[in-house]
Design a protein around this nucleic acid. Structure first.
Length: 553
RNA sequence: GCCCCCGUAGCUCAGGGGAUAGAGCGUCGCCCUCCGGAGGCGAAGGCGCAGGUUCGAAUCCUGCCGGGGGCACCA
């Protein structure tokens, strides 16, 4: 019996009790979802629910009375060995060993599709992340969103969403001009401009542009040549480093196309028709304060030039017109000030903020060296790039380290720790567990233990076994929750729990016969099912994080 | 001044209003005639402060303290 099945059974008991008048409330007032949790202490059984505590008040009964009623009904459910009332009104449930053991069969039979859900089925999601300006390599701060964003895309897809990964390529503004001027200055052997970029990569790109266009310095518009080729080269490098990090976008959207195609003007016209625009001081404004922004925003400046937000307006409208009902944008904490104006903009279009537009703010990565904060500056060229991270620890450790923490938390990354390749990255703990499952399967198969020859879940009675089975059963709920809250780190934390449960089980429950004299029994075969189920979930979970699941390490 | 995030073990971080708050690393002590010891078992060690809501608060609300970030007709 899976936790989902148990939850359904509990709800059915409650609806029954309500319908027959024993609960003192109408059947319709039983919550749609009854939460089933793992109790903290093993002595409290396999699963626990606090539903009786929640229903006590509406039912007008003491919590323990509701719990007692529920426990009595649950005791009659097939697969439930016992249901006890505990504490203020918890119902603790212990399953039959065989019923709990069926979890292994369920997983092995579903294979890689175990853990998938339909919570986001039919949703067309546009997930925009990274979107770093092509004025330099992606630095470590941006890498966090690459890891988290790509993982979120995988998790949403596992819930049935149709996800497009999108990168907004800002190739239009003043920062690009600064970049071009910096390249030009470098090529002429001059110091970078006051507001420009420094660093080794500027040197390299400038040389490459000169190689591509030998007359770049003598042509009529040198800066334009450096801009065009420089951005192209920088962009190619960014794409490549993302690809090497295991992140491939479906759409690279160029801001330029919005201005060239007239999309900006269309968006402005649309908003004007809806009465959201007004003119003041020679500029055109969007009345974002009507929807909670703290000030109105200039869309077209008094000099006639479009302000930055005009691109955002057009871009949002473009995404919606491409058929995405959910536009999700991941931004760093240094951009959180945009949230209220973006949400207001969404409302100005007549959409629903929070539904059609979601903005996820992630906190920054704090770089340390020797425990001391490291100040990074693109201007000074002291940046730690995505490539540096991959060179230092590899893709798996890098992605895992960045994806295993909540995006709400600022995280510290100590470069010396990383470059030392120490074992304190939990990704190895999880990957090792996976490699172990593969090893066990390989050796067991050589010994003649075959899944197809038998499965007797009533043999899975060891305590470490029931823990492992229960943890395996939590996977679909974890994935669903990670998708719902847009929190990939939940998957990583879950995998660490699963790996721990597996290691403990492995330590005391042998899968293979001890030696050639020992016959292969149903216990060996059944445990091989458990091993396979674990391998399946570890592999799928790592896949959701974009981390490899090695068979040997 | 206003807005957002954070404050949990020595360090880095988990923790869906529920029972005795967890993991990794670090420290100390155990376990290889045993499917891979990148493992397992044990010990020490913690919710910034003060109120409030609740049967019940690390979790929700308010204030304070501390850290980070943001408040342009820049992009």
């Amino acid at each position: 019996m899976t936790p989902e099945q148990l939850s359904t059974a509990i709800r059915a008991c409650l609806v029954d009790a309500a319908a027959s008048g024993r609960l003192g409330l109408p059947a319709g007032s039983v919550p749609d979802e009854v939460r089933v949790e793992r109790p903290r202490s093993r002595e409290h059984g396999d699963w626990s629910t606090s539903i009786a505590l929640q229903l006590a008040k509406p039912a007008g009964l003491p919590p323990r009375e509701v719990a007692t009623l529920l426990a009595g009904l649950l005791a009659g459910v097939p697969g439930v060995q016992r249901a006890d009332v505990a504490g203020p009104g918890f119902v603790n449930i212990t399953l039959d060993v065989a019923s709990a053991g069926e979890q292994a069969r369920t997983i092995v039979e579903l294979g890689a599709s175990y853990g998938e859900g339909r919570a986001a089925a039919g949703e067309r999601v546009n997930l925009e992340f990274v979107s770093a300006n092509p004025t330099g390599p992606i630095h470590l701060g941006g890498v966090r969103w690459a890891a988290v964003g790509d993982s979120l895309a995988r998790i949403l897809a596992a819930q049935g969403a149709d996800v497009t990964r999108e990168y907004y390529f800002n190739d239009h503004g003043a920062q690009i001009d600064r970049f071009a001027r910096s390249l030009l200055a470098r090529a002429r052997g001059e110091e970078p401009p006051e507001d420009g970029y420094g660093g080794e990569y500027i040197h390299e790109i400038a040389d490459q542009v000169l190689a591509m266009a030998p007359d770049a310095l003598t042509c009529s518009d040198p800066q334009e040549v450096f801009r065009q080729h420089g951005v192209e080269l920088m962009f190619a490098e960014i794409k490549q480093s993302l690809h090497d990090f295991g992140v491939d976008f479906d759409v690279f959207f160029h801001e330029n196309t919005l201005h060239e195609s007239g999309a900006v003007q269309r968006a402005i016209d649309r908003l004007r028709e809806q009465g959201q625009m007004f003119e003041k001081d020679g500029a055109l404004w969007l009345r974002t304060t009507a929807y909670g922004d703290d000030k109105d925003r200039v869309v077209v400046k008094s000099d006639g030039q479009p302000a930055y937000i005009s691109g955002d307006l057009a871009y949002y409208l473009d995404k919606r017109e491409r058929g995405f009902d959910r536009v999700i944008i991941m931004l760093g904490a240094d951009h959180h000030g945009y949230v209220s104006r973006m949400m207001a903009m969404c409302a100005c279009f007549g959409d629903v903020p929070g539904t059609n537009l979601e903005i996820l703010i992630g906190q920054m990565v704090n770089l340390l060296r020797d425990g001391e904060p490291l100040r990074m500056s693109k201007r000074a060229g002291t940046v730690v790039t995505m490539g540096d991270l991959v060179d230092a620890v590899g893709v798996d450790a890098g992605r895992y380290a960045l994806a295993r923490s909540s995006s709400d938390s600022m995280i510290d990354v100590d470069l010396d720790l990383l470059t030392k390749r120490t074992n304190d990255n939990p990704v190895f703990y999880v990957q090792y567990a996976h490699a172990r499952t593969c090893n066990v399967t390989r050796l067991a198969t050589e010994d003649g233990v075959r899944l197809a020859d038998g499965f007797d879940p009533s043999l899975l009675g060891h305590d470490t076994e029931s823990v492992l089975l229960a943890v395996l059963g939590q996977f679909p709920g974890v994935v669903a929750r990670a998708a719902e809250l847009r929190e990939p780190h939940r998957v990583a934390r879950y995998l660490e729990t699963l790996a721990a449960a597996y290691h403990k089980w492995y330590d005391v429950c042998r899968v293979r016969p001890q030696d050639a004299d020992e016959a292969v029994t149903d216990l060996h075969r059944t445990r091989l099912w458990v091993n396979e189920a674990t391998r399946t979930v570890l592999a799928r979970g790592l896949d959701l994080l974009g981390v490899s699941a090695p068979e040997r390490m």
